[in-house]
């Protein structure tokens, strides 16, 4: 026990643990490579050949209007008839509806799953239910709904909704369990019932986290919405899958760049949106300029 009181021994111990983790990780990785290090050596060459011969430059025909159906938009808005626009807006719609549906459906289950509100015989079954929704990745849910309902965005929306229930539900019950014990003690002393405690104490007390999680989930659903289209559940993934089949990788990379730009824009907007719900009062709210331009570029010249 004396040794643990030694400051340098503690540093030595922590460094040893870190080293041990690195050694274990490397040995597991070596085991996965299984002696075939040569395949890794050639990977960069393969990437450069694939990149210059098949991927680059991107084929921006994807933002031009489709040949059929005939575009009725004015020439300035012709891009709205392109597959990229149609696919991306559909993905955004699927993500939006699935996030909101998922939130309303997961909220009651996650309230049941919170251990500070319910005894274990209620909270554990609710947790298992949420885990079961989460176990299947969104693409498997999408395959399931495509079989049940058929191709199209409705299957995609339902698939994303189910995955959202599992994922958002977990984030929600963790937020509920993280609230301070004192408001619950005061409510328990008043003998408020479970519904009052949930609506009056737990949800408002964790509201900031809930909203933050909701925005995160929307971002997540946009990213994953691109994947579910591959199995025919609507969105931009449908077109990616189509051009992958025809080996038109230059069009695929154009779609991927569009997805990347959309995700970055959503991410930046969500930074701004989330700054309204931060805990710390003294934290400066992000400015719109700061969302799109790194703040250090202009803050230096700002008057104090």
């Amino acid at each position: 026990m004396k040794l643990l009181d030694n400051y340098y021994f503690r540093i030595f111990r922590n460094l040893s643990i870190l080293l041990l983790v690195i050694i274990i990780t490397w040995s597991v990785f070596s085991n996965l490579v299984d002696g075939d290090w040569g395949s890794l050596e050639n990977s960069l060459d393969n990437l450069s050949i694939f990149f210059y011969e098949s991927l680059w430059p991107p084929n921006w025909k994807v933002i031009e209007p489709q040949a059929y159906p005939i575009c009725t938009e004015s020439s300035f808005f012709e891009f709205k008839c392109s597959t990229a626009w149609i696919g991306m807006t559909e993905t955004l719609k699927i993500a939006f509806v699935a996030t909101i549906f998922g939130m309303f459906l997961s909220l009651p289950i996650s309230l049941l799953a919170a251990t500070n509100l319910n005894p274990f015989w209620i909270s554990y079954p609710a947790r298992i239910l949420l885990a079961s929704f989460r176990t299947l990745p969104s693409i498997i849910w999408a395959i399931l709904f495509v079989i049940l309902i058929g191709l199209g965005p409705v299957s995609g929306t339902l698939a994303m909704t189910f995955y959202t229930i599992g994922y958002l539900g977990k984030l929600q019950y963790e937020a509920f369990e993280g609230i301070s014990r004192d408001p619950l003690d005061a409510a328990d002393a008043m003998r408020l019932n479970k519904i009052e405690k949930s609506i009056g104490v737990v949800i408002p007390e964790s509201a900031n986290n809930l909203i933050s999680h909701l925005i995160f989930m929307f971002e997540y659903n946009v990213r994953h919405g691109t994947v579910i289209g591959i199995v025919g559940a609507g969105g931009i993934g449908y077109y990616i899958n189509l051009y992958l089949k025809f080996l038109q990788y230059d069009k695929v990379i154009a779609y991927l760049i569009i997805i990347f730009i959309t995700v970055v824009i959503i991410d930046l907007i969500s930074i701004y949106a989330r700054s309204f719900f931060t805990e710390k009062e003294n934290l400066k709210r992000a400015s719109w300029k700061g969302v799109f331009i790194p703040e250090f570029l202009f803050s230096k010249y700002k008057k104090e």
Binding site: P183, D185, A186, M190, E196, E205
Partner: peptide, 29 residues
């Protein structure tokens, strides 16, 4: 219900709700 009122040391208020919301919790009890 409502016969016992407790003011914890850390007050036990719902911090992200309004004053009225907190007082109404007591009034409803």
């Amino acid at each position: 219900r409502g016969e016992l009122g407790y003011i914890p040391q850390n007050l036990g208020l719902v911090r992200h709700a309004t004053v009225m919301h907190n007082v109404m919790l007591g009034a409803n009890a």
